[in-house]
């Protein structure tokens, strides 16, 4: 046991004949905030989705708190764990999506409560107060009984983050959470994430917001063609890129 929160070893992922992850290694300690950057198709979102088994992967291993995620190897054969076990492991991480994916038939509070009641087994009133606490934290206390269709994109994304955080995950995964938002709504979401980072939440973020990655991350990973192209602290990465590929990527991305 190494004491790492997240430990990815030699991760391989294929879609048919196309290998999208070609051996990724990554470790992360409690409280780390890591941004994953890179051009589209570089495998950053796929890597994130492997961590909570939204994608299957064919080789390598992922451990959270020492626990092997998704697969077990017995007697040399690698087998997918049982669905129930995978569901339990998924609850160890929380995820926010590019498209928010709120449940449209439930109010903001009910969206947050669902996992608390059905997965954590909380009583409804207990779950309700937890939900309200987190909705308050993301600045939406007054909107708790609104339905997703009655909220702006930024508000929906904040509810989605509250829904994930309320489950008290060990690690939060953010998958391009501002990419689908109007520019003027981006900041309210980034602010929420910054606050969570300040509270010591461990986070892995796939993002195109370079300025944000620079400010919030303790480490930045640059993905390039299914491998980690470069990684380091944000200052070094952004100001003194070591590889030509990263320098090129940074040139074409807006840093504002």
């Amino acid at each position: 046991m190494t004491g790492n929160l997240l430990e990815i070893r030699d991760l391989h992922k294929r879609y048919g004949d196309v290998e999208v992850l070609k051996g990724v290694d990554c470790t992360m300690a409690q409280g780390d905030v890591i941004s994953i950057i890179g051009s589209s198709g570089s495998g950053k979102t796929t890597m994130l989705r492997c961590i909570n088994m939204l994608e299957e992967f064919q080789g390598g291993s992922i451990r959270i708190d020492g626990e092997e995620i998704g697969y077990e190897t017995t007697g040399g054969t690698r087998r997918r764990k049982k669905e129930k076990e995978i569901a339990r492991q998924r609850a160890m991480t929380g995820m926010a999506f590019q498209q928010f994916n709120l449940f449209p038939h439930m109010s903001a509070a009910e969206n947050v409560m669902l996992g608390l009641v059905k997965v954590k087994g909380m009583r409804r009133d207990e779950a309700r107060s937890v939900a309200e606490k987190w909705l308050d934290r993301v600045g939406l206390a007054e909107r708790r009984d609104r339905f997703p269709g009655q909220l702006s994109g930024g508000q929906q994304q904040r509810v989605a983050i509250a829904r994930a955080i309320a489950m008290n995950p060990k690690l939060m995964l953010f998958d391009e959470v501002t990419s689908a938002l109007d520019p003027e709504l981006v900041n309210e979401v980034l602010q929420v994430i910054k606050d969570l980072a300040r509270d010591g939440m461990s986070m892995l973020l796939v993002t195109h917001e370079m300025r944000f990655a620079y400010e919030v991350s303790s480490r930045v990973i640059f993905m390039n063609q299914g491998r980690i192209g470069e990684e380091g602290n944000p200052r070094e990465m952004f100001l003194k890129p070591q590889t030509e590929r990263l320098a090129e990527f940074l040139k074409t991305s807006t840093f504002n």
């Binding site: 088994m53 569901a87 996992g115």
Partner: peptide, 24 residues
């Protein structure tokens, strides 16, 4: 994305169906 969001909070498939997919 609805199924994925349900999975991400740790719902099993029967739960996902009962609370997320079915009602919609």
């Amino acid at each position: 994305g609805q199924t994925e969001a349900a999975k991400a909070i740790g719902l099993t498939f029967p739960q996902t169906f009962a609370y997320v997919l079915g009602p919609q």
